[in-house]
């Protein structure tokens, strides 16, 4: 394998990792601050993609669609928090899982009711279509570069928000001790709604960006949700830094596993068996990674409650 191809694949791994980070950041914030397992996070991702496709089709502008995706997902998140999630904080995790699983079904069938069962069309805007030649002669999709840029920008923004602002202080305090911060006069209900809407907005943004190069259809959120859970388990629940590192690890492991394992196996076995076994092992790679991380650090890489 040539050096250029290897670098291109590393870029692909980073890009897929940063997209996972957008999903995992919201999930880990909600879990860290509120102690809530939110299975419906994938539905918010789907809401973002559908809002983007719907608005882009109606107005002809991808950028309006992108703005709509963030707004729609944040609004859906806030409504869900106030209407349903709020009642679940005091309950145990099983109740939370059941209720948010019900939300998945409601969101899926609601989306089908609005948009029908056929996948929607959403394509890369003209300004970002095609590919560019990077130094060293690597041909790389401009839109994927933009996704990398957006992912990094969100990461930096989140670190500043959590680390440097008053809201960030409250979020961190909420993670450390819920009752104390409520006792200090912070409106904990409003803080929860805000954090939930922020997480939802990030999921919606991820849905719109990923939907642009993938398929916008009902049920698109659940496979990503599983990966996002893997990411936050690896990174340590509640840690934004953990989510970023975990997402990049998962993205790179997944991409490089798919690329490198089949040829590796074909060194010492027949090609067709090697491709099949290599592919099977590649699909397990991230779970093996997760198991290894948990053996060494049971609380995840940056887990607060190890």
């Amino acid at each position: 394998m040539s050096m250029i191809l290897l670098i291109e694949q590393l870029l692909n791994g980073i890009q897929s990792g940063l997209m996972l980070f957008l999903m995992a950041a919201g999930l880990t914030l909600v879990f860290g601050v509120m102690g809530l397992i939110n299975l419906a996070h994938g539905s918010l991702y789907m809401v973002g993609a559908f809002a983007c496709a719907g608005v882009a089709a109606a107005t002809g502008s991808f950028w309006l669609g992108l703005a709509a995706s963030i707004a729609a997902a944040a609004a859906a998140g806030a409504i869900v928090e106030v209407a349903v999630i709020r009642r679940l904080y005091a309950r145990d995790h099983l109740d939370q899982v059941l209720a948010t699983f019900a939300l998945i079904l409601i969101f899926s069938e609601g989306t089908r009711w609005l948009y029908g069962s056929f996948p929607l069309y959403l394509n890369v805007p003209a300004a970002l279509s095609g590919s560019v030649t990077l130094p060293g002669g690597i041909q790389y999709s401009l839109f994927r570069l933009a996704i990398i840029g957006a992912g990094l920008a969100v990461a930096v923004g989140l670190f500043l928000l959590i680390g440097k602002t008053r809201i960030g202080v409250q979020v961190r305090a909420g993670e450390a001790d819920r009752e104390m911060i409520a006792g200090l006069g912070v409106d904990i209900g409003r803080l929860y709604t805000l954090v939930f809407a922020l997480g939802a907005a990030l999921a919606g943004l991820a849905g719109a960006l990923v939907g642009t190069i993938q398929s916008v259809q009902v049920g698109m959120g659940e496979p990503v949700l599983i990966l996002a859970f893997v990411v936050i388990v690896i990174g340590g629940i509640g840690s934004i830094k953990g989510a970023l590192i975990g997402a990049l690890l998962v993205g790179l492991t997944d991409t490089m596993g798919r690329v490198l394992l089949p040829p590796l196996f074909s060194l010492f076995m027949e090609t067709s068996a090697a491709t099949s076994i290599g592919a099977a092992l590649a699909s397990m790679a991230i779970y093996i990674l997760m198991a290894l991380v948990l053996v060494v650090r049971p609380g995840g890489l940056f887990g607060a409650r190890a």
Binding site: L5, G13, V210, Q214, M220, T255, R258, V259
Partner: peptide, 8 residues
């Protein structure tokens, strides 16, 4: 859903 690696 992501085929960047295969396309390369």
């Amino acid at each position: 859903t992501d085929y960047a690696a295969e396309i390369a």
